[in-house]
Structure formats: structure tokens, C-alpha cells
């Protein structure tokens, strides 16, 4: 079963239960789509193994923040289904164009941020004692060398 399925709708409790095969979309995709609903519904995700241990299903419990009816739950689950596909596609597209996107985004942020200024590090510097040598760069190489030799 590839498609998202509306398993049940309980109008009295304002809840619905959706399911989909966990092999269709990754958990990241499910997270992304579920996140898009949390302004309108309370969402609880679960996972069930299929009988016989072959594969599993994602279960999505929804409780509407407002009163749900057959139409609104159909809209909500339709939107969720679209969002699943969109999230999956987007991940694919981002992967395909990853190098170019990274270049553009890095340039845009570097262009906006500009070169780092001394005051940007002022806080960190305050925390450092200038006599501290956390990287060991003040240690004479002879010392380092002899220490390494001893260890080896």
C-alpha cells in the first residue's frame, strides 16, 4: 500500500487515524509533513510491524485543534499526503542540486555577513586567558617530539 490511508475518523472525539507503508517515505519526510500540521492538529506518530514481521506501517494519530468533520479531515489528510510527496521530492531535488545550492547559499551568507571582525570574537576572547595554550602551539617542538617518542 503506497498511498496514505485514512483508517478511521471519530467525529465525537475529533480524532483521525492515518497510515502508510513505512517503505514509501523516510522518517525525515514523515517528520517534515507532520510538522506542517501541528498548527492545526495534535499529532502522535507511531509505527506498527506488519503481521508476519514483513515490513511496517507508520501510523499518524491526529486530533483536530478545531472541530473536524468529514470534509475537513479529508482536506487535512489530503494536504498531509501532498506534503509527504513534496518533502520527499524536495529532498531529492536538494540532493541533485546540492553543490550549486551550497555555493549560492554560502556566497549569499558570506556576502551578507562580510569578513569577521575582531569584536565578533570579543566574547570568546574574554573567556580565554592569553597564557592558556589549548592547542599546544607554544610547546617547543623538541618537547613534543621527545614526548611522542616516549609514548611510542
Amino acid at each position: 500500500m503506497a498511498k496514505l490511508k485514512l483508517e478511521s475518523f471519530d467525529a465525537e472525539n475529533n480524532t483521525a487515524l492515518l497510515s502508510l507503508d513505512s517503505s514509501v517515505y523516510t522518517l525525515d519526510v514523515l517528520y517534515g509533513a507532520a510538522y506542517a500540521l501541528i498548527d492545526r492538529a495534535y499529532v502522535l506518530l507511531d509505527k506498527q510491524s506488519r503481521e508476519g514481521g514483513k515490513g511496517s506501517r507508520f501510523i499518524v494519530h491526529l486530533r483536530g485543534k478545531r472541530k473536524l468533520n468529514k470534509d475537513t479531515i479529508a482536506n487535512l489528510s489530503g494536504e498531509f499526503s501532498n506534503e509527504l510527496l513534496s518533502q520527499a521530492l524536495r529532498r531529492k531535488v536538494v540532493k541533485q542540486n546540492g553543490a550549486l545550492i551550497e555555493e549560492i547559499v554560502t556566497q549569499a551568507i558570506a556576502g551578507a555577513a562580510g569578513a569577521a571582525l575582531p569584536q565578533d570574537f570579543a566574547e570568546e576572547e574574554d573567556d580565554l586567558d592569553f597564557l592558556d595554550d589549548p592547542l599546544g602551539i607554544a610547546v617547543p617542538w623538541e618537547e613534543k617530539f621527545s614526548k611522542n617518542k616516549k609514548e611510542s
Binding site: Y31, A34, Y35, I38, Y42, V43, L45, K65
Partner: peptide, 19 residues
């Protein structure tokens, strides 16, 4: 309000953010 519902959304959102 729906405390359990809010709890679930919070736990989900924080899981996503932490991951």
C-alpha cells in the same frame, strides 16, 4: 486546552529539532 495533545506536539517538534 488539550494538555496531552500539546505534550505530543511539543515532544514531536523537539525530536525533529534535536535530530
Amino acid at each position: 486546552g488539550d494538555l496531552a495533545g500539546e505534550f505530543c506536539n511539543f515532544a514531536l517538534a523537539h525530536t525533529i529539532e534535536r535530530k
